Simulated assay, not measured.
Amino acid sequence: MTGYTDTIRLWATDTRRAGLLAEADGVGEVGLESSEIGRRLAVRFTLKVDLDRVSDARYQVFGCGYSMAACAVAADLAVGQTLRESRRLDADCLEAALDGLPEERRYCAEMAAQALQAAVQSALTGGTVRTALPQDKAHGPRVTPNHPVYVLLMSSRSPAAISDEDRHLLACLLSVATEEPWETGAALGLDDKALDALLSLVFPGVDRAVLAELASPTKIPPLECNAELLTLLLPHVPTDRSFMQQMISCWLVRILATRSALPGHLWVAMGLTQRPQLSAAIRRHLPGLAEANSRNMRWKRFLFKQLCDQNGGTLCKAPNCGVCSDYHLCFAEDGK
């Protein structure tokens, strides 16, 4: 793991309490309501209780290293405490135990704390308790054809080597990035050199200074590109394509590794108008990755499941997808 503090790395790789407890006394979930399918990262906590005291705790998390660390420390802190004491373990407690979190990762501690509290409530009242984090924005496409940045980009000359689909894809990404509190390139995992190349090759005549005038003021540290996802995705870049196509594939890999860290559907985080556009882009530029997702798993879940499988952490509660009661949470028809 790169880009993490030593404390975060320590807890994120601590899998002593990862997994699922059989015949648990308390089960709490966040992000697994039917209305939340694919909309955010998800956590499940299971607890064993002995004489009103948490005797064991396990977690399953579908998310980044910060999420894994927050869940690991939450489970560790809960064990040995009474149910009443465990209810005091809020996001502030978890963040303090992790020696702080970046502002944009605060939601990881909130998610872990809420799932733990749901499990405690379950132990007190019986039955699985499902809860949801507040939604920051209405769920749906964030870029429309009349978005000023989209209009500017798509009005530029269209190079013969670039398809309309790829110009639309990259215009949506740049448009949504200008609305966010990061530098436009950083919001997509691209450095200044890569952003300049993208603009000059795909949208001739539009430079970074023009985008900067339309972008929201930068307020917080740059969004990080997930190094583990980047390592996972880079081998899928085809080597038998034209220079231009390889460039787009490399940009897409960095963009996916960065935008996957945001809450919500990945296709929405990329500013697209519907999920099939993301699937089509991956088929065009990362065909091996598209082939690997043969069962049409939601893309963010698919990517993080690959990391979970590699690192030994998992949200899955069944040995294979076909027999899992959460199947509908991971798989859906295109467009949903």
Rank of each mutant, 00 (worst) to 15 (best):
D6S: 15
Y327C: 00
Q277G: 02
S55G: 01
V176T: 06
D14S: 14
L272I: 06
D326S: 03
C330K: 11
R259K: 09
Y66T: 07
A160Q: 13
C64S: 13
R298N: 00
R39C: 08
G126Q: 09
V73R: 12
G335I: 03
V149I: 08
P221E: 12
W11H: 13
L278R: 13
A160Y: 13
S35H: 12
L214M: 15
F243P: 04
A161M: 11
L329D: 01
P204M: 06
A123M: 05
C108G: 00
G264Y: 00
V120L: 03
S260H: 06
Q274R: 10
C250M: 12
G80C: 06
S158H: 12
L21N: 05
F304Q: 14
T82Q: 03
A57I: 10
G313M: 13
E228A: 15
E85H: 08
K336L: 14
D334N: 05
V54T: 06
H328N: 10
T178Y: 02
K219I: 06
A18Y: 11
A187T: 10
Q121I: 14
D192N: 10
L230N: 09
R167F: 10
D50M: 05
S175G: 05
P181Q: 07
D56F: 01
N296H: 04
A113M: 04
S200W: 00
S158D: 06
S260K: 06
S242T: 15
G312N: 04
G38A: 12
E36A: 15
D6I: 04
P181C: 07
G100T: 03
D52W: 03
T131Y: 00
E95K: 12
L307G: 00
A118G: 01
L41A: 12
L77A: 11
T184L: 01
A138M: 05
D50E: 15
A261D: 12
C225R: 13
G26Q: 11
P276S: 10
E179H: 09
T5I: 02
A74Q: 11
M154V: 07
Y150P: 04
D334L: 08
R295G: 03
D56E: 12
L211P: 00
G28P: 07
L233F: 08
L315H: 10
E291K: 14
L256E: 01
T15D: 04
S216A: 15
A186K: 12
I37D: 02
L41F: 15
D52V: 09
L94R: 15
T2G: 15
R284C: 09
W267R: 07
L133D: 09
D166Y: 07
L101S: 06
M270H: 04
G38V: 14
A72Q: 07
L315S: 13
G264R: 00
M247Y: 14
